[in-house]
Structure formats: structure tokens, C-alpha cells
Design a protein around this nucleic acid. Structure first.
Lengths: 341, 341
DNA sequence: AATCAAATGACAACCGATTGCCAAATGTTG
DNA sequence: CAACATTTGGCAATCGGTTGTCATTTGATT
């Protein structure tokens, strides 16, 4: 009666159960399972058989505690309900799973504080972090990146590995498209003030406008939600422009709805260009011209860059910056400029 | 030089650091932090001050290992990119965070195997599980529910706590709506064969149809994606019906697109009713009539039910079944039946 | 002031793995 | 057959907490 347990309890099996069943030490079991060639092949097979028989699954908590590696990667997004992130999340999830990692998805609610505290917590419970559209300061990001492997998405901070979606380049494409349609008064509908993406797009756009000699004014900021579209649309109409390039598709779709309510025709009276080509951009009314990019792929690339940091051995010089191409997809929301009355 | 560490290393602080700083035992620190009233208030304050000073954050792995509670809840969805789940996820995330839990979100890729292995793994790394639209068999779910706290969403298995979205009830509402518009030949566009929701809707719909003496035929099954809408639309047209009730909005929106391509007018030639009122249902063309329900709230309720299982003490008899109301939202995709030629 | 109950804090075992170190077993070679 | 190199496997410490047990201190009561 001095043995540990009658074995048949429904509690998950541990290496000790296996060890007892095989008559070896727990450490031998551990080695057999994680460093197979340091254990006699016959012993190993016995252990493997016992493990299978007991339906053994290693306890990840315990493993993490003793080894320091958690096998998890945190993925931080500002807003889970923003369709832009769906494909991103899908991309990271697939790539992480393929590499044997678990994804810890966190919605930071567009808050730098939530983001900071999450990063701090993840420092212990994850091996690395992927931060999309970070709201943190450059310093905070650099600091975090110094403490643990980290990759940003759409956030360019020198010294922090990043995947950048090259929407700034696409904005000048969009501008050319609008100019070719005869538009000369264009507005940029800005996103949140804390979004670096929005800034980068504005910078690229205003430079392109200057080169081409057209006027681009800036409206906003607006929250990246369809609800903000109403205010954005009103601002655009009031400003007298004939075309808008919106920070993202959510705002653009919201504008479409508002303009329709107000009886302003798109694209006859106003052209709208969105950004991201999210779910819905192809079936809204009219279908949205927008700047598309391989978002799921961006997620995969971010994971690859992070894994390269985690296992520096596996060849491939650690790239610290990856730019995803973007292109303009023209649909029904852009058309010839209305003749000035 | 016999002390542990010169303290100032950048490694996260542990209770031992705090204990050393205060000159007490580590266990006292643990108690001060988790069972405050079992420790002298002055000592406690010293400890709290030290903890703050060292930026102490408890190591969740270690906590989980020794206490058995992980503070995490797994949330399983069949497809993260399906907008239906966005609000659900948002709801669970908010409610879990409010209760101090972490959400482990997993995309099971509509696969029962992935789902089963995830459940098995989560058994050790989570305190409970919420499974949306499970693809598992009744037995597997019962089994899993016996091993750990579990709540399903939209999956009715006797003995397993569930949150059900009452779309079956709404289907008869939708049918009445169509009948009142003069439709007599209606199709149900079925979802995946493994989806119990789809079955429940079909059962309710065909019963309602029988009562009312109209013909409802079943088409499909179709995958719950917009891409499937094309095949569904073609099948509907071929079957000669004048109205369709689709398994969900994704399929319905896909049908809308296909019908438009084929020059079939909605709702003049064909009425379409979707289900779920997902992101996009209000701005597609035409806007989709659909069965709406408080999805985010469903997520919150599921979390509440799970937490009730986890802390049986906190009053409120454990409800094992919660039904969310649903109602038909009429938009532009339904209209009077075309006159039989 | 003496007595006793209650509050407090330290010790140590434990959760389930990993891993450094060393001893035993094995095989090889001269 | 002895001596030595090489595997192989076990012991025990460790990760960072939690928790049961028990001795001690504190305070209240008479």
C-alpha cells in the first residue's frame, strides 16, 4: 500500500506514472522523450509504449517552469472585431501552429496601457511577441524588444524587427488614379492620432500631392470604425473635395453609407478610396476601390521573423525588416470627377 | 558574497526577492499577497511596498503548477475569419478579462480532430473551455464536459451546459415574412453536415412549413463561406424557388453576389434571408434581411455560466442552458414574390 | 498579573517537468 | 583478461509559487 496511486485514476498521466510503469527514474523518461538518443533504444521504446498506453501529454506549465521556454507566442491587436486583423490572426495562427507554438491572442482595445501591461505579463508567459499596429511609444517598444523577442507589424521603429505593409506607396498610386480621373481636390481621412500607419500614409500622400501639384487636405482624426464614417463623410462634403482617400476600409464603408443617406452619389459626386481590402470591401455598395495587400502573408512573415529570433541557429541571417507589397484595387467607388459648377 | 544575487539584475522579481528585501519567508509573501487577512497588516504593507518597488508580477506558470488553477479559459471557434465569431470572441474576451481570466483563443479549422486534440491539451492549461459550434460528437462532448468545466455555444447536448441562439424560432418568423410577401416555394440553403445549428434550423423550418402548408425544399450542404454562395445561388435558381433562407449571412452574401452577376434581381426575382446579422449584412447590396441576435451577449453569458461552474460558491444556481432571443431584421433583400409565369 | 484564545509567521513538502553531475553498465582495445 | 573509453540511467536540485502544520507572538479577558 506504499505505492503512489492505484494508477487507474482519471487524472492525466505524468512522467512519474510512466517511470513507475517502466521501472526507471522520472528523469530517464524525460530524456527518452526529449533527447531520444541519450537513452537506450529498448528502454526508450518501452517508455514510448507506456506513454502511449497512458495517453501521456506533457504538462506545458511544468515544462515552461523548468525549462524557461513556454512554447507560446503572444499576438497583440488593437481591436479583434476589426476585420483587417482576421486574416492577420489567421496567418500567425497557422504559421505558429506549424512550428509547434501556441498563439495567445490579446485584444488591447486600442489602449497603450493595456498594451504595456500585456507585454509585461507576456514576458513571463510567452517566448516572444508580435504586436500589430502598436499604440506604444518608440521608447517603450525598443525597451520591450530588448527584453524579449518581439516583432511589430505596421510599426516602424529603428532597432525593432518589423513587418511593414507598404500602404504609403499605394497611396500615391491611389492619388494617380484619382488625378487621372480628373480630381484635383482630394482629402485624406486620417485615422487615430496614435496610429503610425496613418501618419506614414499622410506623409507619403502629401509628398506625392506636392510633386503632382494637386491639393490634398487632411480631415480627422477619426476612429477606425464604420461609425466614424458618418462624421468623415460630412467633413468631406463640407470641405468641398471630390475624392477621399480614407485611412482604412472601415471608415470608407461608413462614409459610403452616410453619403448614400444624404443622397450624395458615389462615385458621381464623390469618389472614395479605402485601404486594406477587408472582408466586405468587395460587396459593399458600390464596391470599394481600395489598397490591397497580402495580410495573411504578413502574419506568416512576422511569425517567421520571430522564430528566427528564437532559434538563431537555423540559418538565414535574421532579417529585421520586411515590406509587404501593396496595390490599388479599383472597384466601383471611384469615378470621373464631377465638373466644377 | 553568499547572498543570492546582487538584486539589480533585470530578471523579473520573484517572491523570494521580496522576502529577502523584507526579511520574511517566501511563504509569508505569498500569503500577504493572496490571503491578506492572514498576515499582519504592517508586514503586509511592507511586503506590498517591496512588491511595488520591485515591479513584482506573479509568475502565472508557477502559480498554475502549484495551485492547479491556470487562470485561463480556452475558447474554441471553427473559423476565426468568420465574422460571426468576432462579436462572440469580443464578448468572451471582455467578460473573461473582467473576471481576471485570460482567454486562449483557438481556431479549430472546422476539424473535429483539431478540436479534440485542443480540448485534450487545454485540459491541463486551462480551467475551463467554451466551445462554439462544436464539430464533436455528442459523446465526445459529454466526455469532455465530465473531465473539465465546459460550456457550448449553439450546440445542444443533454447534460452539457449550453448557450443556444434561438435561430430555429426565427426561421419560422422568416418564413411568415416570406409567406406574407406571397412566396410559396422556398428553399433552405443548408450549412455543413456537421453543424447541429444547421440541422436545428432545418427541423424548425420544415415543421413551420408543414403547419403553414407551404413547400420548403432543402439545398446543400454548403460550406459557411461567401464562396459557397455561387453554387448555392445556382442551385436555388435551378430549383425554381422564389425565396431562400440561408444557413448564414456568409452564404447569403455570396448568393447576392452571384445573383447579381447572373443578372437575377434581388428581391424582385429572388428574395434572400440570411442568418446572424454579421458585419457586412447591413451594407451589402441590397442590404440583407437576416435573423439577428445578441451575439456578444451570448459570449458573455457563456463565460458567466462557465465561471459559475468554476466557483460554485458564488450563489446563483448553476443554470445549464441559456437561450438567446433572435428576431428577424428586414432589409432590402426580401420583397414580394415574382408572379408565376 | 495570569490565563487562554486568536492571530501570525516560518518551515517544508509539493506541483511536473528539466538538467547537471556522477556512478554504473557496456563495449572496445591491447 | 585487464584497462580504458563510452554510453546509459539515476539522484537531486531547481523553476516560482501554494498550502498544511506548527510554534510563537499578540491581545483580550478575568
Amino acid at each position: 500500500m506504499a505505492t503512489t496511486q492505484p494508477a487507474a485514476v482519471d487524472r492525466p498521466a505524468t512522467i512519474h506514472d510512466i517511470a513507475a510503469l517502466c521501472g526507471v527514474a522520472a528523469s530517464t523518461v524525460s530524456r527518452a522523450l526529449s533527447t531520444p538518443d541519450r537513452v537506450n533504444i529498448r528502454t526508450r521504446q518501452r517508455i514510448e509504449a507506456a506513454a502511449a498506453q497512458l495517453h501521456y501529454t506533457p504538462n506545458s506549465q511544468a515544462k515552461a517552469l523548468s525549462s524557461g521556454r513556454t512554447g507560446a507566442v503572444g499576438v497583440l491587436v488593437p481591436d479583434i472585431t476589426n476585420p483587417f486583423y482576421f486574416d492577420l490572426i489567421r496567418g500567425t495562427q497557422l504559421q505558429l501552429k506549424a512550428a509547434g507554438y501556441t498563439q495567445l491572442l490579446v485584444d488591447t482595445e486600442e489602449s497603450d496601457e493595456v498594451e504595456a501591461s500585456t507585454v509585461e505579463q507576456l514576458r513571463k508567459s510567452a517566448d516572444g511577441i508580435i504586436v500589430a499596429a502598436s499604440r506604444l511609444s518608440d521608447e517603450a517598444l525598443l525597451d520591450a524588444a530588448a527584453k524579449m523577442p518581439l516583432v511589430t507589424i505596421n510599426r516602424d521603429v529603428p532597432g525593432v524587427p518589423a513587418v511593414l505593409i507598404d500602404t504609403p506607396a499605394a497611396t500615391s498610386q491611389a492619388l494617380d488614379h484619382l488625378i487621372s480621373l480628373g480630381h484635383t481636390r482630394v482629402a485624406y481621412v486620417a485615422g487615430p492620432p496614435t496610429s503610425q500607419s496613418s501618419e506614414r500614409r499622410w506623409t507619403a500622400l502629401s509628398e506625392a500631392a506636392e510633386e503632382r501639384g494637386v491639393e490634398v487636405r487632411r480631415l480627422g482624426p477619426f476612429a477606425p470604425k464604420t461609425q466614424s464614417g458618418a462624421a468623415a463623410a460630412d467633413a468631406a462634403v463640407h470641405s468641398g473635395v471630390t475624392a477621399c482617400i480614407a485611412f482604412n476600409d472601415l471608415i470608407a464603408i461608413g462614409m459610403l453609407q452616410r453619403l448614400r443617406e444624404r443622397g450624395i452619389r458615389v462615385p458621381e459626386d464623390m469618389s472614395i478610396v479605402g485601404c486594406d481590402d477587408i472582408f466586405g470591401a468587395d460587396f459593399c455598395n458600390p464596391p470599394l476601390s481600395t489598397m490591397a495587400s497580402p495580410i495573411e502573408q504578413a502574419g506568416r512573415v512576422a511569425v517567421s521573423m520571430l522564430l528566427a529570433q528564437l532559434n538563431p541557429l537555423a540559418g538565414g541571417g535574421t532579417r529585421s525588416r520586411s515590406v509587404m507589397p501593396t496595390h490599388l484595387t479599383v472597384r466601383g467607388s471611384t469615378g470621373p470627377a464631377r465638373q466644377a459648377s
